[in-house]
Design a protein around this nucleic acid. Sequence first.
DNA 1: TTTGTTGT
Length: 306
Amino acid sequence: MISKRLLHLAQLSAVGFTGYLIGQQDNSNRDDSVVVNGKKLSSLPALPIFGTVSAATPYAEGGKSKDRVTEIMKYGFPGLDNVRSYDDFVLSYDRRTRVPHWVFEHITKEHISKNDAVDRSKCDFKPDESIHPFFRSQNADYKGSGFDRGHMAAAGNHRLAQQHVDQTFYLTNMAPQVGQGFNRDSWNRLEKHVRKLTKVYNNVYCCTGPLYLPRKEADGKSYVKYQVIGANTVAVPTHFYKVVVCEAGDGSLHMESYVMPNQRLPDETPVSSYMVPPETIEKAAGLLFFDKIHRSKLTTINGKKV
DNA sequence: TTTGTTGT
């Protein structure tokens, strides 16, 4: 049933890729030089032009979190739209849908091991003030909608510090998910599967996000149709994906990629039956996953040798 | 165990 749906994705790919490439090109024309008293000065790091912002700005905490972003995003950004970094995950926010495009995590044994200093029950779902109010989702949007506020970066992957778990409860990290049979069951099983990978692999890099897949309707034409909830019309994705890369002790890399429909799913269906080729997700999402890894450097994709 | 919502 899933693969049949995914066959209808060809139209989406052109739009996604074109938009992404235009964004890239704009960045390359950037000119950081500044004109002062008719003279053009380049902004060298050691030579602050206006004196208000200098290279000597205290950087202790900021430097630390910058290193963490580099670690999490080691294998590349899937896209560059409205990127936000938090202490232990990074996301790209879609202002049009009020749901993230993608959320990136780097998970190890240490990140998921039991930690008495961290208590999930102390966490509150909270709007993300860093998003413009026009585009910010609110708890009220989800209330009474019948949908869960489903984590993209799972709370259980961030147990190193209370602040890390707290930040996964920002609504920027949420998407409306069917509760019974999906978020609390099949999707939860997929999240547990990803955590279990840290028992076998030293490092697990996990990208999670929504899909809005076209469906053929009675008139024979394909349409993308999705519900929206609340005053801020938060989009209810038709599907969710996960693309995972695992680093083994010998340095070999293993990719797994999944798509699950946002609906009540049978408990007996194994997680592995939701595997799809990563390219299918890339075309549907308009994103490129792990683009710093040449696909020939992967030892396996979805359990099969490359 | 982890994933959540609702009503009092």
